[in-house]
Design a protein around this nucleic acid. Structure first.
Ligand SMILES: [Fe+3]
Ligand SMILES: [Fe+3]
Length: 976
DNA sequence: AACAAAAAAAAA
């Protein structure tokens, strides 16, 4: 906290009895003066500055009564920026900044240090200084004695960062005759140091506030700071070159990120104490020792051969040679002319991830990146990827490097948690052999906005997309990504809304020369082209050559200024999947499966909704033994869903110790289509968009198995979810069109129309291409429905894209400076962030709750938790200290409520109802439980929720039931 | 009226 305003201090509400601040005459002596040590080497800061400059306060601490001169904070920040430039930024980021600024690396370093060295110069103004007139009157009196009169209060509060921008900008204009627009491209970096750049209008307003800025000595002291910082950092020699050209926005944002990082560090009194050593080198040495930031990663490869590399990094894969995709990736990474984007389309299980990590090493060693960002669509896939990446790092790292797992529930991941705890205590983490692991979590690189600044960041793709979102501190996201190789996996799962953000991200990444590897199942050609076009835009190429339109799969496409179709040697044999249509009555499944599984076998049934899955399950329940039937969907408690998925992989996976049962039916929803590496002998699926249907088919005879049951030797796909196959066009189940829209589902039906088989993998690319081809003609007799569906889809797409624009960060080429770049038309970003309007996913309201068991008057931890049955105290403080582990285990017991309860306009009353059911007031101190909602289930797994609907006094009662077999069900009781 | 899965949220 920079101002002594303590209204927002977390301590103040409960701190009525806190000791009063020391008496005014005692507390306002800068302790630094007394701390000059005789052997202090280097520049003693006080000798540099005039007494007037030293009298200006920059920070105050109301609790200790100490204050700190702003010129010292600025000197600390400049020194920290130099340190970060030299030892935190990877070579790629340094040369990128130098390229963009049009000066040498050394010169752009001077620019960075200068900007950090003046970021708070707006504090040397009457308007800022006057804030402490009540709390630190003698500081103001001393300032006044030095000619800095701040005794008049300024109620109109212009943020000091805005004042900094005005001051720096005007100085560049008068001192170096910079034109205003050019000056703004540099000055906005000071203006944005609080995470939000002032708008052009507010800058004009600030400039026209002479009272706020002050005159006379105020101007002289600021001039002194600007000149001495310029001289100290070497910027004085660089400005004449810089002012002749505008700094590109891509450099503005990364430098802003660097200034913010330096400021945060310099503002931490553990690292830069008010009363610590006075000489800057000593202060910096103390801070860097305490920070202990690992250096950026330096990739060093011992071989150029893909197979050799593969075996060095992934010894468990020896002695098998590198696979086709891996070789293509490694070899084309070696050949790329400049930082490239790869688009890798291949099924799971061909070693894409390993190939991408090896390619990242090749790219980083060639282009100087210092880390890798690896993004996945879900937390559930990011977690195992974190573990895999850690094992790669065991073999890839020569020195210590920082790692982070970044997603909303990262702290619930045990491996990351142990690394986090090790960073606290400074001791080595348990679990994995620490001697082998040079990957560490750095203490400073924790928290939502800092973790992404680590060298190796594994997280949800959202964490990268935030770099394209209008949100506070987006420049820190830019700093985090600008020196890395960026890999995003399973990109096919992104919808049109997310793709808007992904495109914008790619444009920014390209502008920093960041190598990108996009991995996906088959993409419609328009999507492939969209990624290349967005990336090319970032390097100023408006008309990149488009990739070959032919149907190949797997395929690797590369753009490095030119577009290349990289050959991938095919290795899999092809398979002919028989395709049959069946009716929608669940009873038909019972009959069909009992016949098909007569000689044993494992069947998967994928339904488009939870309700349909539960219906199929119920139909099978009577005739199939319990241990041969599994239901899986997302409406299970998270630990139970995890256990279920682990069970499926144990039974149907591809591991050495797989225990495949002789007979099994798995009924589920789309959770079966996502990233589970399991194999069915026969598959039944609801009709779905063709790409999704093919994802599901990917689970059919997925692994090479020595033998399959006699009746299931050839892969068979049965498609249902259509109420009438005979009508023209087929009439789709309503729930299916509600989820996917009529167009994409109808298109799937069209491309499969009259087909009786699918050849894998050859048919995949053409089916997906045709399924999304705008010119696909409807089959005869489908025209009317088709037209209506196409129109509805076009409208929905336009709405989605439109919605995405609201919080989409402008592209680097679309702005001159960062002035107002995260401002939202008619809104303020603080509010947008607080209320969660700014999103990278387009989603309707939905609610996740933590489940507790209610037994009599007691609340207990759920049976699936790590502490089953443990009593949870109510109405008293709980969840911190010794209880934190219980709170953490409880926080893992989440359950998503059905959409039926989260309808438009219902969520508010639902939250209210839930808050009334469990007294969680005593748990709010726990970071695990703070702000969460709780659902108490009685010992039958039941809970009733009443929601006001319609008129006053009118209530709808929903009966929820949870059991470990069917998951959560909701039904509406009769009105009462 | 009812329809998957998925993510997220502290600074200087
Ligand atoms: Fe500041
Ligand atoms: Fe600051």
């Amino acid at each position: 906290m920079e101002t002594p305003d303590v209204r927002h201090s977390p301590h103040c509400s409960q701190n009525a009895s806190a000791p009063a601040p020391p008496a005014a005459h005692e507390k306002e002596r800068p302790l630094t003066v007394a701390a000059v040590a005789a052997d202090d080497a280097g520049t003693v800061q006080n000798e540099v500055w005039s007494d007037a400059a030293l009298s200006a306060w920059g920070k105050t601490d109301r609790f200790t009564g100490q204050w700190f001169p702003v010129v010292h904070h600025l000197t600390d920040s400049a020194a920290m920026a130099e340190e970060l430039f030299d030892h935190y930024l990877p070579p790629a980021a340094r040369t990128m900044l130098s390229d963009l600024a049009g000066v040498s690396v050394q010169e752009v370093r001077s620019l960075a240090a200068f900007l950090a060295g003046v970021h708070d110069i707006g504090k040397i103004t009457p308007q800022f200084a006057s804030q402490v007139s009540q709390t630190f009157p003698t500081v103001l009196a001393a300032m006044k004695r030095h000619g800095l009169d701040a005794s008049r209060p300024y109620p109109a509060r212009i943020p000091h960062a805005t004042l900094s921008q005005v001051i720096v900008q005007d100085w560049l204009q008068t001192e170096y005759a910079a034109d205003p627009r050019t000056a703004a491209t540099y000055a906005c970096i000071a203006g944005g140091h609080h995470g939000r750049n002032p708008s052009k209008l507010s800058i004009v307003q600030a400039r026209n506030s002479p009272g706020a800025l002050g005159s006379g000595t105020w101007i002289e002291v600021r001039q002194e700071v600007l000149q001495k910082m310029s001289a100290r950092t070497g910027a004085a020699q660089v400005w004449p070159m810089l002012v002749s050209r505008r700094l590109p926005p891509s450099a503005q944002s990364v430098l802003t990120g660097l200034v913010i990082m330096a400021d945060w560090m310099a503002s931490n009194t553990d690292y830069f104490p008010y009363d610590g050593p006075l000489s800057t080198p000593r202060r910096l040495a103390q801070a860097t020792a305490l920070l202990d930031l690992p250096q950026p990663w330096r990739a060093h490869l011992e071989s150029t051969d893909a197979t050799t590399l593969l075996h060095q990094r992934f010894p468990q894969l020896a002695p098998w040679p590198a696979r086709g995709v891996q070789r293509s990736l490694v070899e084309s990474a070696q050949a790329a002319r400049s930082a490239p984007i790869f688009i890798v389309e291949a099924p799971m299980g061909v070693g894409k991830t390993e190939g991408a990590l090896l390619a990242a090493e090749v790219l980083a060693s060639r282009f100087g990146q210092g880390g890798v960002f690896l993004g996945l669509p879900t937390m559930a896939t990011a977690n195992p990827m974190f573990t895999r990446t850690m094992r790669w790092l065991d073999n890839a790292l020569g020195e210590e490097a920082s790692v982070a797992l970044t997603h909303g529930k990262a702290a619930l991941n045990d491996e990351y948690d142990s690394l986090l705890r090790a960073s606290w205590h400074g001791d080595i983490h348990d679990g994995h052999d620490p001697a082998e692991s040079r990957a560490v979590v750095n203490m400073w690189l924790r928290g939502a906005k800092r973790a992404g600044l680590s060298s190796f960041v594994i997280g949800t793709i959202d964490q990268a997309l935030f770099a394209a979102l209008k949100a506070k501190h987006v420049a820190l996201r830019h700093l985090g990504l600008a020196g890395k190789v960026v890999i995003v996996d399973e990109v096919h799962s992104a919808d049109a809304y997310m793709r808007e953000y992904l495109h914008r991200l790619l444009t920014w990444l390209a502008s920093w020369h960041v190598p990108v590897i996009v991995m996906s199942a088959t993409l419609p050609p328009a999507q492939r082209e969209g990624f290349i076009t967005a990336y090319a835009r970032g390097v100023g190429d408006l008309h990149p050559a488009l990739p070959d339109a032919g149907d190949s799969y797997p395929r690797v496409t590369l753009y490095d200024g030119d577009t290349h179709d990289i050959p991938v040697s095919a290795e899999e044999g092809s398979a002919l999947v028989s395709l049959e249509r069946m009716g929608d009555d669940p009873a038909l499944i019972v009959d069909r499966l009992s016949a098909l599984l007569a000689k044993g076998g494992c069947a998967g049934v994928v339904c488009n909704t939870v309700r349909r899955a539960q219906e199929v399950f119920d139909a099978l329940h009577g005739s199939v033994p319990d241990d041969e039937l599994i239901l899986i969907h997302s409406r299970f408690l998270a630990p139970e869903r995890l256990a279920r998925e682990a069970d499926l992989v144990r039974k149907l996976g591809n591991t050495k110790d797989v225990q495949r049962p002789s007979r099994l039916i798995v009924v589920g929803t789309q959770v079966l289509e996502q990233s589970l590496d399991i194999d069915f002998d026969v598959l039944i699926s609801d009709l779905a968009p063709i790409d999704l249907l093919l994802q599901r088919v990917g689970r059919l005879h997925r692994h090479h198995r020595a033998s399959r049951p006699e009746l299931l030797r050839e892969p068979l796909l049965l498609v249902r979810g259509v109420t009438d196959w005979e009508s023209t066009p087929p009439s789709l189940a309503r729930s299916t069109t509600a989820i996917y829209g009529a167009s994409s589902t109808l298109r799937a039906a069209a491309v499969l129309n009259e087909q009786i088989s699918i050849t894998l993998p050859d048919d995949i690319a053409p089916l997906v291409r045709r399924g999304y081809d705008p010119d696909l003609p409807p089959p005869a007799g489908w025209e009317d429905r088709w037209r209506a569906a196409e129109q509805a889809a076009a409208n929905a797409l336009a709405v989605k894209r439109q919605r995405a624009q609201a919080y989409l960060l402008p592209a680097p080429h679309a702005v001159s400076s960062l002035d107002g770049w995260i401002d939202v038309d008619g809104g303020d970003p603080d509010r947008a962030e607080r209320e969660g309007h700014a999103q990278v996913r387009d989603s309707e309201d939905s609610l996740e709750v933590i489940v507790v068991d209610r037994v009599g008057d007691e609340l207990r931890m759920p049976l699936c938790s790590a502490f089953p049955g443990t009593v949870i105290p109510q109405g008293q403080m709980w969840g911190t200290g010794q209880d934190a582990r219980y709170a953490r285990a409880l926080a893992a017991c989440t359950l998503r409520l059905p959409q039926e309860l989260c309808r438009e306009g219902m969520v508010g009353s639902l939250i209210e109802a839930l808050e009334g059911m469990v007294d969680a007031s005593g748990w709010q101190q726990s970071p695990w439980l703070r702000g969460q909602l709780f659902l108490p289930l009685d010992d039958h797994g039941n809970v009733a929720i009443g929601l006001p609907r319609g008129g006053p006094g009118h209530t709808e009662l929903y009966l929820l039931h949870y059991d470990s077999v069917r998951g959560l069900t909701a039904e509406k009781a009769r009105d009462h």
